[in-house]
Design a protein around this nucleic acid. Structure first.
Length: 524
RNA sequence: AGCACCGUAGCUCAGUGGUAGAGCAGGGGACUCAUAAGCCCUUGGUCGGCAGUUCAAAUCUGCCCGGUGCUACCA
């Protein structure tokens, strides 16, 4: 434990007013790959996800449903727990902002901000639409008949409510200095420029409390206010490691190595959050990565279009590991991308079934048929064997470098380059011919291939834990010998009996409606 | 409107001064261990347009056209 480097990765906490969709799954899976990779690579990993449960929207939804806000939060928070389980996500903790530990942490952080002089009582004012429950900027309004209306057509009125403010304006220079010193703090690089330019444009103080609703954490010493959601929500990252106790897990895991976020909440994580933390005398996180959005078959995902992709349907239709693979392989991480059935099928069939799955299958089958089901003993190596083995040995540092910058697509690309090389090696060596001419050489070739597959499968574990495990099972690699340190230390031993091969990545064949029904039969 | 980024083969993208690349899709071939998989070969682009700098530009500069993002309280 003492010798292991800590690694702390977080998903955003998901808002309980939302139903889980592929976007949530995407963020969570990306973090899971980070967490699994780092664990296998010997790190002491803390992986946090959870739910954000306060705010006016939740209060309103609960009222509409005729239940208490906490009842709504309980129910919907569970949906996100279920999602994590569905996706085989390895989070170490699941935080809820309604938990006592979080309330304690947020109030403690508030006190720190008060003590540092960064909080003052003022009033928040603006053009408010009761109908939309939202404030609008003066420039957004339309004036008709001497009255002002929101872009939505709703009437607005000038309202003013008391509010505590955070002196964000005082942190502009220190934030810019921070970005300057830490060029990797915001990723991808393009997003960093946006944030820097935003901050350079000047910062206004931030309203951090509200009096118009009460579903939130009370401001210490002023029960008429609840904290504004972002202060509440962002604090979850330190709540989960024990804050305000800064000795134990906090000392070990903070600052977080990576906050993974969707691009819509980048600013909150890269401007407000570091400012809050610095004001409280705490360190900002090391890195915030803003990933992109998925469209579906070329269209924006939306409730009104009815094309929202539910993670459970993906897993049901394509399989869990296939879904995990597709999401991280299809688009350069950080970019927006499109989710289409066609692309999914191409990835599953072309890369999982044909390249990876079939490589395993053909090699294991030949061992089964030609070697009586026992892993052969390798003989003398040729240049071709060495070349392939060297390529596989070079995988870990190459993949690690990509994972460290969240280039998941490139990490997979690197792995597939060896899968491709192995498939070419099979054809070049033609074991089906060696079988008749040179059984010693045959043994070396099949052994080499099995060893390549072992190495690849160990490295695909973070992406596809179940499928990788099934491959390693078929090579009789002990469960405790699947860490990255076992890549070199756990080289396969010849002579071991292998079980009959079983396909791991089946081809996806689209069910053709009507095809499997009797003519004239009505479906369902 | 301002600022930033992007526009390269049918599709998704890499390439940032020295004779255009990958994967997928399309076409052809040899093999047969395997999941109608794998392997080999191959068609395809005046690198958005115009002008300039340079011995040399997809790569630098200017302008134009087209697209995207950001421009604070929306969790």
């Amino acid at each position: 434990m003492a010798g292991r480097t800590p690694f702390y990765v977080t998903t955003p906490i998901y808002y309980v007013n939302d139903a889980p969709h592929v976007g949530h799954a995407y963020t969570t899976i990306a973090c899971d790959v980070m967490a699994r990779f780092k664990r296998l690579d010997g790190y002491d990993v803390k992986f946090l996800t959870g739910t954000d449960e306060h705010g006016q929207k939740v209060q309103k939804s609960a009222e509409a449903a005729g239940i208490a806000p906490i009842a709504l939060a309980d129910r919907n928070s569970q949906n996100f727990r279920d999602l994590a389980a569905l996706l085989n996500v390895s989070n170490d903790d699941f935080i809820r902002t309604t938990e006592p530990r979080h309330i304690t942490a947020v109030q403690a952080l508030w006190q720190k901000l008060v003590e540092s002089g960064d909080v003052y009582l003022g009033s928040y004012s603006g053009w408010y639409s009761v109908r939309d429950e939202a404030y609008y900027g003066a420039d957004e309004l339309v004036e008709r008949d001497g009255k002002r209306f929101a872009p939505t057509g709703a009437p607005v009125e000038w309202v003013e409510e008391p509010s505590y403010f955070f002196k964000l304006s005082a942190w502009q220079d220190r934030l810019l200095e921070f970005y300057e010193q830490r060029p990797d703090f915001i990723a991808p690089a393009g997003k960093r420029s946006e944030v820097v330019s935003f901050v350079k444009g000047g910062l206004k103080d931030l309203s951090i409390s509200r009096t118009t609703f009460d579903w939130g954490i009370k401001v210490p010493g002023d029960d008429t206010h609840v904290m504004y959601v972002w202060l509440d929500a962002l604090t979850n990252y330190i709540t989960a490691i024990g804050y305000p106790d800064t000795s134990g897990d906090y000392a070990r895991y903070w600052p977080a190595d990576l906050h993974m976020v969707g691009k819509d909440i980048l600013r909150f994580h890269t401007v407000y959050w570091p400012a809050f933390l610095m004001a409280a005398g705490l360190e900002p996180p090391k890195r915030v990565f803003a990933h992109g959005w998925w469209t579906v078959e070329g269209e924006k995902m939306s409730k009104s279009l009815g094309n929202v992709v539910k993670p459970a349907e993906l897993v049901e239709t394509y399989g869990l590991d296939q879904t995990r693979y597709f999401l991280l392989r299809e688009i350069p991480f950080g970019n927006d991308g499109d989710f289409s059935k066609r692309a999914m099928m191409q990835r599953i069939n072309g890369e999982l079934a044909n390249d990876y799955g079939n490589l395993c299958q053909r090699v294991l089958s030949m061992i089964q048929k030609y070697c009586g089901g026992a892993l052969p003993q390798p003989g003398e190596r040729t240049e071709a064997d060495t070349k392939l083995l060297d390529a596989a040995a070079a995988l870990l540092p190459a993949v690690r470098a990509e994972i460290d910058v969240q280039a998941f697509h490139k990490a997979l690309d690197v792995l597939w380059s060896v899968i491709g090389a192995a498939n070419r090696y099979v054809d070049e060596m033609a074991p089906w011919s060696l079988r008749k001419t040179d059984t010693v050489r045959l043994g070396t070739v099949l052994y080499t291939l099995a060893e390549i597959i072992r190495r690849v499968a160990i490295l695909t574990q973070p992406f596809m834990p179940q499928a990788s495990a099934r491959i390693l099972d078929q090579l009789v690699v002990p469960e405790e010998a699947r860490r990255f340190s076992d890549l070199d230390a756990g080289v396969l031993a010849g002579g071991v009996a292998l079980p009959p091969p079983q396909g791991v990545f089946p081809r996806y064949v689209e069910a053709e409606p009507g095809k499997d029904e009797a003519p004239g039969a009505k479906g369902n």
